[in-house]
Write a protein that binds this DNA or RNA. Sequence first.
DNA 1: GCCGTTTTCGGCCCGACTGTTTTCAGTCG
Length: 577
Amino acid sequence: MAQVTREILVNTLEQIALLLELKGENPFKTRAYRNGAEIVQNFDGDIVSLAAQNELKLIKGIGDALQQKLFELASTGTLRYFEDLRSEFPASLFELFELQGLGPKKIKALYDNLGIDSIHSLKEACAGTEITKLSGFGSKTVSKILSTIENREKFAERFRLGEVAPLAETLLERLKNHPKVSRAAIAGSYRRSKETLHDLDFLVASSEPVELTAFFTSFDEVHEIIVQGETKASIRLNNGLQCDLRAVSNEHYPFALQYFTGSKEHNVALRSIALKQGLSLNEYDFTGEVQLPEVREESDIYQALGLEWVAPELRENRGEIEAAQRAELPRLVELDHLRGTFHNHTTASDGSHTLEEMAAAAIDHGLQYLGIADHSQSSVQANGLSEVRLREQIEKIRQYNQEAQDFRLFAGSEVDILKNGELDFEDELLAQLDYCVASVHNAFGLPEKEMTQRIIRAMENEHVTMLGHLTGRLLLKRDPYDLNIEKIIDCAAETRTVIELNCNPWRLDMDWRWWHRARDRNVLTSINPDAHKTEQLQFLAYGVRLARKGWLRREDVLNTMKLSEIQSWLALPKHQR
DNA sequence: GCCGTTTTCGGCCCGACTGTTTTCAGTCG
């Protein structure tokens, strides 16, 4: 039997929901499966083992039927009910659900009447006329389907936070500067700082919503207008990114901001708290028979429900509501708490700027210190430094520091963790450095156990200050390598090894979902841009956003220490840190 | 299919927009 994973449980429930929709089943039954998928996805614990032991009954939203099905799937690897359902339709039918504008009813009509069972056959059918003979399908529907298929081939479905942010902020400024706009924000997953985004949700407060949707859809960057109504509009930009706009009154704005920031799970939990107080919360208002609280800002909504205001990054229903009820939310780290940063490259290896240029840029950023960590000798592809060149660089940094005032460079190395867990330089050389970042750059395919052991061995080295980009993932491009992160975190706690939060928009590694756990074990992070150019020091802003998402406070972040503190800290033997 | 301090049946979020249709179904978020 193949290894059953959480992902398999989730996907199976979601596919059952789709199949039931296709069959025209009771929509609430469909929702129960979809809801179940969400619960399994977000469950904090080993849901697969619990399912295999038939111990899910106490979880709200999982009833007898779902428990039984998850038990069968987790313990045998297959689910008869699902297999039977699935055999009623061709597998390729599922891809039609990926097209915006096509839902179960339309897909069923296409399949039942014309035998259309894939995007390919749909595209062919659109060239003919038979589709327009179906009830509900006119010429506009056909041309819309064709453009959706074309866009799907041309554009990505998701985007990296850091790659979207500059444009997002430009568009937001434009909306804010409109004379009929009193308040504006980007809500949604952008405000929650998810590492990848599907779209941007703009929100404006305005007395002239029609004018604003027209303004929005006339932006130069617009590739197509998806919808445009009186209070909302959707556009696709030239880069493929979808942007939605909601225009609401100033009174409704705090509610809309809260509602459209999400997450859905956070809002569901919030609404149920409201209901217990006799209040109903929606995207525009509080309603109810009781005295309605006065709301001018988003924070007033939380206050009215007896909660601390929850920072958007935390709104994932991962314990923040309970913490807000107890007034125990963390004071999250902020960008201007950072005093320096550690993982940066220069022209000595694969960077674009010299040591002096990087130092000047760091000073411009208001930093008190900058760690230089060029690649080590095994990273030939990145022009890694030989032992001799590293010694020269250390000397150069010492000279720089003799002349520098109120600023300091730290001599480090991004030293490769070799396949067997040994480091790329001898301990004698590592001891000359102020610090050392240890990273994996090859042999990504090792089995989980070996990869974990490899990194643990590196952490056990006295000279390894921190781990670089822990899982090697490249967002939307390359999966993390197999690694037991729980063990890594435990070992980091034991060996006093720092785990980097790599701020490169492609990495944002380690993943934000693990930081709370690391924090609770007193593992420190260092927010590092992995800068290969001076302008990439700006990546620090993304790292801070993800650190906040991981519940990290100022005291959990090594590079919030001021220069004198960090010097003392680095001087300590590792086990005393 | 799930839930319940309104508790074993009856309700489950609903408003905005589009397209095709003469009053509304389907989709989305």
